[in-house]
């Protein structure tokens, strides 16, 4: 598309282009943003959520002051290329293929759409595997990742973060299990627990494990590639408990309620842990200059209440942050 044309007609086009966003990822791009008054975009959040969200329309006005902060190449390109690492298995309700069985939806892509609207950009989505998402950002194929990526010190060596959400953790067991968690890690002694590797919940679990070992007890920790495999392990009795992000656990509990092996939430724990502060952030290539405008856009959405509407639509209000920060302190680089 021509830069000149864009410059002449940005307010109108920004909205118009959103409506005709072209598909690029395997799962395509959601096009639920309707043209509205010049310079504003109506972003529909929570659609096709398979029961995880309540649909809502949020009208966003483009903020030219924030748009001015964008790196020139992105501003003139007019597109915000968003990487999502939800292949092959998604992680509902955060990022997943929706109930039409083809469209990428979830809280994370929705926030990306809101941020893009604030910045007057057209969002496109590349859905890839978790690892390829980072390669996409590294290679410049994608500008930013919105995919429940935790801000860690190690990642900050290569990426800039604009934080936008907190983590809460949930314990999932079979409904038939009587185990429950009330805040004391001793309840986990002798149990087999699944956790995703490289996450803050893993770090918490490992801390508990080493504490239990000093008391002569233990936790058996198992790793699985995705939530499907975890669920199969849970239903077949290979593991007793799954510790994961609470939204995902809650979604699985709702979805399996009518299946032969329903699950339940057996307890919650703060993703911040005892000593750790886990934050989810939009992830950009280091020094690309994109983290600050995104953080400012999120802060704009927080201040005008749209951020709250977005979280409420996805039933994630307990995970709200007060402000978005660029590169806040994250999980320490090593586990030792």
């Amino acid at each position: 598309m021509s830069t000149k044309l864009l410059r002449l007609a940005v307010p109108v086009l920004a909205a118009g282009l959103l409506a005709s966003a072209c598909s690029s990822g395997a799962s395509g791009t959601k096009t639920d943003s309707a043209p509205a008054a010049a310079g504003t975009t109506v972003v529909r959040v929570g659609s096709l959520s398979n029961g995880a969200a309540t649909e809502a329309d949020i009208t966003v006005a483009q903020q030219d002051a924030l748009r001015a902060e964008l790196p020139a190449a992105i501003r003139s390109g007019g597109t915000l290329k968003v990487a999502v690492g939800a292949l092959p298995a998604g992680f509902p309700p955060l990022a997943f293929v929706g109930s039409d069985q083809k469209t990428l939806t979830g809280s994370e892509p929705d926030l990306a759409r809101l941020v893009a609207a604030v910045l007057g950009l057209k969002p496109t989505f590349d859905n890839a595997t978790w690892d390829n998402m980072f390669v996409g950002i590294d290679s410049g194929k994608d500008a930013v990742g919105f995919a429940n990526i935790t801000d860690t010190e190690q990642r900050k060596q290569k990426y800039d973060f604009a934080s936008y959400r907190e983590d809460n953790l949930g314990f999932e067991t079979l409904k038939s299990s009587t185990w429950s968690f009330t805040g004391d890690y001793h309840a986990l002694a002798g149990k087999t627990v699944a956790v995703a590797s490289g996450t803050n919940q893993e770090k918490i679990l490992l801390e508990w494990q080493s504490k239990l070992r000093t008391e002569g007890k233990d936790i058996t920790i198992k790793y699985y590639p995705d939530s499907n495999a975890v669920l199969l392990a849970l239903t077949s009795g290979k593991i007793d408990i799954y510790l994961g992000p609470n939204p995902g656990v809650a979604y699985q509990v709702t979805q399996t309620s009518k299946s032969p092996n329903p699950t339940r939430i057996a307890g919650e724990y703060s993703g911040a842990g005892e000593t750790l502060q886990g934050l989810i952030g939009a992830t950009t290539k280091k020094d690309s200059g994109l983290a600050k405008p995104i953080a400012d856009a999120v802060n704009y959405l927080i201040q005008n209440g749209d951020y709250g509407k977005w979280l409420a639509a996805w039933n994630l209000s307990t995970e709200a942050v007060k402000t978005s920060q660029v590169n806040p302190p994250g999980l320490p680089a090593s586990n030792s």
Partner: peptide
């Protein structure tokens, strides 16, 4: 091939399993 973001039969099954965890089996 899902490693190159292409969803074949098994890739779609995995995706749908995560959206419909009750139907994994």
């Amino acid at each position: 091939v899902f490693y190159v973001s292409l969803l074949d039969l098994f890739g779609q099954v995995q995706t749908m399993s995560s959206t419909y965890p009750g139907d994994v089996v």
